[in-house]
Design a protein around this nucleic acid. Structure first.
Ligand SMILES: [Mn+2]
Ligand SMILES: [Mn+2]
Ligand SMILES: [Mn+2]
Ligand SMILES: [Mn+2]
Lengths: 215, 215
DNA sequence: AATTAAATTTAGACAAAACTAAAAATATTT
DNA sequence: AAATATTTTTAGTTTTGTCTAAATTTAATT
């Protein structure tokens, strides 16, 4: 598997979580910042290698083998993110780019040793679950902050958007994984939400609320 | 810089330590397991990028910039080797291959954080010096065991050959970095050397002696 | 149902990095 | 110094992954 092939697999995996009946060529192109024609070429190659099933004009989906491969890449990505934050003191907005490179280092022993060294973390710095060696993912029930009713107290457990911009904005609002959030008031007109984060009042826009996972 | 270009630079660097007046096309091809014609192509490209000076048929040498680049790659390689041994409990014969991949991860912050995390090691698991951020190398005086006279007591500080085969053979003989070696007898006929390693007598072949650095 | 729009695929081209085979330059022998 | 051997370079292909432009298929509108 080349780095390019791995990047395609990973993107197809992420997209298939949202649209399980088949992933569009254009969606893949968008995520990889490439052209649809390039995607078509690659899909044929991946189908040839039996990691995706591909029917012209019908989109792709991962085979069992492709799914396992993809999860292994995700596992590597997220373990490296944990390493960078826990051991090298990186912040959660700095790790993604570097993990994009590190995820392609292929050594089972390396990644399993790293896993043990980090004490078998279940989640990465953005609250995303880390697949185990067999690709199994322990999934937690979590909801978007925007879906929670007024009055409840919940805990921030993840982000949907993990762009540096969004993460830095959360830093500014003093919201981190584990923060207690009490929903004080939801404005129906402009969808602003007044919340209490760790005993301080904050106004959050809908854009924040639809990208923050709580429990 | 692509991974391929980095691999060329690193090899040219290593070869230029042995032949400072210019590195041969064939020597590079041998180290990279490629063909001389491929090397010629790449040398032109590297010259274009001003990291090597190249005159047809005259071999190459690194420019100041190329030298710095090469040292940075070597720095990354050796720091990752230290990480694998010190933190992930890899043995010294297992780290080279993985470091060959890790050395291409390009993030100044990553490598400097790693350096600090490892407590700024001066040497890698094979006794090779680790360049600092500026490419400066603190070089130690060391000699090959084969060059030492009878009677002296010296300390193993490095290996010239760092192939897994050689390293595992040293393991078998209980020779590691730091081992005390007393030269008891040198046989001129077959060049075998009788030594005492940490109070145990061992016979070493010349092939071992010319690949072991002592101090 | 016909038309228009959007998504997808094909065809043909290109750059990077490798290869083989042949030509040219340099080194080594005789 | 001439002949031979070795090293290096050139010329022409190949593979991978990308691109643009054009053709085709599917989806959405009128
Ligand atoms: Mn990430
Ligand atoms: Mn993450
Ligand atoms: Mn090494
Ligand atoms: Mn080493």
């Amino acid at each position: 598997m080349t780095i390019s092939e791995e990047n395609y697999l990973k993107v197809i995996y992420h997209l298939s979580l949202v649209s399980p009946k088949g992933v569009n060529t254009n969606a893949i192109a968008g995520m990889l910042d490439t052209k649809a024609s390039s995607v078509t070429d690659m899909l044929k190659k991946l189908a040839e290698k039996d990691v995706v099933t591909y029917k012209k004009y019908q989109g792709v989906s991962l085979t069992n083998n492709g799914l396992l491969q993809a999860k292994k890449i995700v596992r590597r990505h997220r373990l490296w993110e944990v390493f960078l934050v826990e051991k090298l003191q990186f912040t959660w907005d700095e790790v993604h780019e570097i993990a994009e490179e590190l995820e392609h280092i292929k050594s089972e022993k390396l990644i399993n040793s790293l896993d043990a060294y980090l004490d078998f973390p279940a989640f990465d710095p953005h609250g995303d679950p880390i697949p185990n060696e067999k690709g199994e993912i322990k999934k937690q029930e979590k909801q978007l902050l925007s879906e929670m009713p007024t009055g409840v107290v919940c805990k921030c457990v993840g982000v949907k958007d993990s762009s540096a911009d969004f993460l830095q904005y959360l830093d500014k609002q003093k919201i981190t994984l584990g923060s207690e959030i009490k929903i004080l008031e939801k404005e129906t007109f402009d969808e602003l939400i007044k919340v209490e984060v760790d005993a301080k009042e904050v106004i959050l826009s809908n854009k924040i609320a639809v990208n923050l996972y709580v429990q």
